[in-house]
Design a protein around this nucleic acid. Structure first.
Length: 499
RNA sequence: GGGCCGUUAGCUCAGUUGGUUAGAGCAUCUGCCUUUUAAGCAGGGGGUCCCGGGUUCGAGUCCCGGACGGCUCACCA
């Protein structure tokens, strides 16, 4: 109520409570950028006229010193202090000052100088009111520690946390870099349907919605993959899309129901070419955005220096399965179903029964249990089982192994790519196998997409495709441990709803 | 959905084996202070101890149930 009372007093002093504009000559960042490097002597050497600014900002600190006051002004990005003296702004300005609170917006007109302690400051000649903050800001010293408010009321987080601000600026630069990277290499950015009759291109549960006029159920896409490959078939040899995917799965530090995916397709290329392109993309992004390929990750460091390590899924299981109780995992065990079952038993793979009949799923499960938690440095895991890769082409030398890779960084799956299956008959066969699995209760198995098979029958050139999780990439580039830290408005349980 | 942890002033947190009137710093209010910067000094106000039951002479503290949040496991990128 104090703040509302202060607002009333400001109005009584004759100040408009919601002025339409302030004739700013600079923002705080401009002042810091222009004079941040000038010491006191350099500033004094400039004529006063050249140091005059009309500077708006939000008040983030008030230090009263009797008949002088220091205000920390922020433009969200930088801070600079205003030095307001009673004899500088007069009785009117002083009366206004006495009714200002933390969070209010004001405009200061004055001269840039440095105080005797060397702090860059603006000596106020006048002070105008711009907007009132009626709610108290979080604790000035501890900041916003309530992680729920941080996510639910991101605007409050952004007001007080320069780190949060920086995180989202880095994220924006990542996306911008990705676009420039692909544009420069002749890729066409496209947008494909978010609402699909068949949610294809990945194994996940979709969200469902309904179109009234057509009276059809539609799915929010779980991936753009099948549409992008239709475009390659249609004659765009290089396409990419950066957009949201929606998966009706759990929420965790690495999962948000809607997340941003980069997918790109290169005709006439294979999985190896995509890996090389990916290394170039990530190392280049790190260098340009962060100025280094050595990224801090908690107490550790991740090196985005190319080339990244290549490791087959089986080799990974053997390498990280050495200390399994009951004896190390042996390469010969991974070649047969009985051997895999024995190995999985020793490794303590969960839900053994569910994957027991499928050697591909069993190997993937072994990999996830034993190897994935160790893959801190960027590692391309290659040679995925064909059974778990229904949209991928097999290796030319081995029909049981998909020409597929996944990139792991920071113990997370960051990217997934492969040489695309372009044989319509084989694709039809794989869809049928997926449908059969679905009938057996696997509700993440894919649906048969008849139109996609027809598209392939028109002839898709040899093509490699890949998806990269942009949110996770943003996590890596900002040293964020939770995906919620890199999504401005992550999905939260609505307030007041029970479980 | 399971497990673990948390919820005390506007904010960040203390609060002993269950025992007077629940505390501190910041914020807020009053006074002093014209180069401070977590400004300083003096004083004041401010509490549904998350909610509902229970045990007890007595509950912020113990027990049961619930709400909300975090972490984690499973599904998944």
């Amino acid at each position: 109520m104090n703040r509302r009372a202060a607002r009333e007093r400001i109005a009584a002093l004759g100040h408009p409570l919601h002025p339409n504009r302030f004739p700013a000559t600079h923002l705080v960042s401009d002042v810091v950028g222009r004079w941040g490097g000038s010491d006191s002597a350099a500033l004094e050497a400039e004529p006063e006229e050249a140091r005059r600014v009309a500077l708006p900002g939000r008040i983030l600190a008030i230090r009263k010193m009797g008949k002088a006051v220091f205000l920390d002004l922020s433009d969200g990005l930088k801070r600079v202090q205003a030095y307001v003296r009673k004899d500088g702004v007069g009785d009117g300005g002083w009366a206004l000052l006495e009714n200002l609170d933390l969070g209010d917006h004001v405009g200061v007109t004055g001269t840039v100088f440095r105080t005797r302690t060397g702090e860059l400051s603006v000596k106020a000649g006048s002070l105008v009111f711009l907007a009132k903050c009626l709610r108290p800001l979080p604790d000035k010293w501890h900041g916003l520690t309530d992680i729920e408010i941080k996510y639910r009321q991101r605007y409050v987080d952004l007001i007080v946390s320069e780190e949060t601000r920086r995180t989202f600026e880095v994220r924006a630069r990542v996306v911008s870099y990705v676009r420039r990277f692909f544009d420069a290499r002749g890729f066409l950015e496209v947008e494909t349907p978010m609402m699909q009759l068949i949610a294809g291109g990945a194994a996940a549960r979709p969200f469902i919605t309904h179109h009234n006029a057509l009276d059809v159920d539609l799915y929010l896409r779980i991936a753009p993959e099948l549409y992008l490959k239709r475009l390659v078939t249609g004659g765009f040899p290089k396409v990419y899309e950066i957009n949201r995917n929606f998966r009706n799965e759990g929420i965790s530090t690495q999962h948000n129901p809607e997340f941003t995916m980069l997918e790109f397709y290169t005709a006439y290329a294979d999985a190896r070419d995509q890996m090389a392109l990916t290394e170039e993309l990530l190392a280049g992004a790190a260098r340009e955005i962060l100025g280094t390929t050595q990224l801090p990750w908690g107490e550790e460091t991740i090196s985005f220096e190319a080339p990244f390590r290549r490791l087959s899924m089986k080799d990974a299981v053997v390498e990280y399965g050495r200390d399994v109780p009951g004896g190390p995992i042996r390469p010969d065990e991974l070649g047969s179903l009985p051997g895999l079952k024995v190995a999985a038993g020793r490794a303590g793979v969960k839900y053994l029964a569910r994957f027991g009949a499928d050697p591909g799923k069993l190997l993937a499960e072994l990999f996830e249990t034993l190897a994935e938690p160790h893959l801190l440095q960027p590692t391309f895991v290659v040679d995925y089982p064909a059974e778990i890769s229904p949209l991928a082409k097999a290796r030319p030398d081995d029909p049981k192994t998909a020409d597929r890779f996944e990139l792991f960084v920071g113990r997370m799956e960051l990217a997934n790519g492969f040489s695309e299956l372009n044989d319509p008959d084989e694709q039809a066969e794989k869809f049928r196998a997926q449908v059969a699995q679905r009938a057996k209760g696997d509700d993440e198995a894919m649906l048969y997409d008849e139109d996609y098979v027809e598209a392939l029958s028109y002839g898709m050139p040899p093509t490699a495709g890949e998806g990269v999780g942009i949110d996770r990439l943003a996590m890596l580039f900002t040293n964020s441990r939770s995906i919620r830290d890199v999504i401005l408005f992550p999905l939260m349980r609505p307030k007041g709803t029970g479980r």
